[in-house]
């Protein structure tokens, strides 16, 4: 086998477009490949790929392994895993990067085990040290601590949190190489069967893409304020409504409202929190927010460490007046 070289990233796409996390991953990968003086390759898997390989090149890839197979129609974990194990064995990359998306989060650890290496999970930053070792920075203990880790075996793998890099500018005249490959998947690699996929309609705006988000915590005291006072604020601001895990666990609002480490990641221009303490596991889901505003009766609450503006007071008094004044302004 040739000695490992280059950076390989695992691409993701939906509806004929590369996902935003994949574009960001191309930027991360480009920086590492350039520092190594080696190539940046991307594996794209699907039933058919259309113009995606060229798109990936426009965003920074040197090489595209375009793997098509009917079994890859959906991003099925087992099928992706089988294909990627083969691709990594065939091309022997030095570094493999995934996005820590729903797919990457579950695929990365299994791929690492199959390739007999280790994976740095949920990284915010990746770089090379002077020995060309991959060094990754990642939050641990729910964000209360930060770890710097490295992988001492090849390929060195990392799963990178979305929204930690800006995609490179799209350059349609960039040239690269597209290599068509067959997955050669035996149907027996597929051990799990998807019987049904159910979309649960979300009320209101999508949290992940909303420009303004308002969210409530246990301090709201019950389900009612979510439908009344918080909803009124959301209507005035044209905002999506979210909540903490404490609130969804009690059942005041559905689980789909949960923002945080194990909930949704948001990156609005404005994030207004009401009765939220600011636990690091919650804050992990809103690090992309430009401005955080907090209403909390405890002036010592951790949320005031992350907020730009705040009122230390009872929301029952503060919120109606806040909403009323906003209505007059907007």
């Amino acid at each position: 086998m040739t000695s490992p070289r280059g950076v390989l990233i695992v691409g993701e796409h939906t509806n004929g477009q590369l996902g935003a996390p994949t574009l960001e991953l191309l930027a991360h990968g480009r920086a590492l490949a350039t520092a190594l003086g080696e190539e940046l390759a991307i594996a794209l898997l699907g039933e058919s790929l259309g113009g995606l390989p060229q798109e990936a090149i426009a965003y920074g890839a040197d090489k595209v392994y375009a793997v098509t197979d009917p079994l890859l129609k959906e991003a099925h974990l087992d099928a992706y895993l089988g294909t990627l194990v083969k691709a990594c064995e065939a091309h022997a990359p030095r570094i493999v990067l995934l996005a820590r998306t729903e797919l990457g989060r579950d695929l990365g650890p299994r791929l690492a085990l199959r390739l007999n290496t280790a994976l740095a999970q949920d990284c915010l930053e990746v770089r090379l040290d002077s020995d060309k070792r991959l060094v990754a920075v990642r939050p641990v203990y729910g964000g209360n601590c930060t770890a710097v880790v490295t992988v001492a075996s090849l390929p060195m793998m990392a799963a990178i949190r979305p929204k930690t890099a800006e995609p490179l500018p799209r350059n349609p005249s960039r040239r690269g190489q597209v290599i068509q490959e067959a997955a050669g998947l035996a149907p027996s690699v597929i051990r799990t069967r998807v019987l049904q996929r159910v979309q649960e309609a979300q009320e209101g705006l999508r949290l992940e893409t909303a420009r303004v988000v308002v969210a409530g915590g246990r301090g709201l005291g019950g389900a009612e304020p979510f439908h009344k006072e918080l909803q009124e604020l959301a209507s005035v601001l044209g905002a999506a409504v979210g909540a903490t895990r404490a609130v969804v666990d009690i059942g005041w609002v559905p689980y789909s409202y949960q923002i945080g480490l194990t909930g949704k990641s948001i990156s609005p221009d404005l994030y207004v929190t009401v009765g939220i303490s600011g636990a690091s596991q919650h804050m992990a889901g809103c690090s992309g927010a430009k401005v955080i505003v907090a209403i909390n009766k405890d002036s010592e609450a951790a949320i005031f460490k992350a907020a730009r503006y705040g009122v230390a007071g009872d929301w029952k008094k503060v919120l109606p007046a806040f909403t009323k004044q906003l209505r007059e302004l907007l």
């Binding site: 209403i295 008094k317 503060v318 109606p320 007046a321 806040f322 909403t323 009323k324 004044q325 302004l329």
Partner: peptide, 12 residues
């Protein structure tokens, strides 16, 4: 507290 809420809106 009401006044703080009002001022918060004006601040934003």
């Amino acid at each position: 507290e009401e006044d703080s809420g009002r001022l918060l809106a004006l601040k934003l």
